[in-house]
Amino acid sequence: MNLKPETLARIDEVITHYPVKRSATLPLLHLIHEDIGHIPEEAITWIAGKLSLQPINVYEVVTFYPMFRRHPIGRRHIKVCRTLSCALMGGYKTCAAFEKEFNTKLGATSPDGEVTVDFVECLASCGTAPVVMIDDELHEKVDGAKAKQLSDQIRAEAAKRT
């Protein structure tokens, strides 16, 4: 596990926010997750050491919160809201559109390793349903046409990278 120097600096800073070090568990998980994209085994023991905890204390937190991934996924993460208001406005169709665009299935990574499509629960933007988060960005009113447009954009960005 090779953390960037700025991640290490932010880790040391965030620990000072709490009178009890254990409280920094979630912030540290977030920082490492952002840095390397998932939470490997060694991150768990590293955090436990840093916060003077047992690895099980960190492990039980990682497994409780849906946002933390244990394994690498596609370069982009497409998270389609599945909950009622979005579903009423066509969220399931939006999800199917992304699956088709990238030739993949829900919960799986596309063959080119570019995207992983997942369902998530209510994103607190129900008034602009259906909504989708791609990495950190929220996209609103994502119907079939908009799903196509976002997919094209992802492919264009991927092409630029190579």
Partner: peptide, 10 residues
């Protein structure tokens, strides 16, 4: 004031 982020649990 400090900001503390959750991680996807209702």
């Amino acid at each position: 004031i400090f900001v503390h982020r959750g991680a996807g649990a209702y």
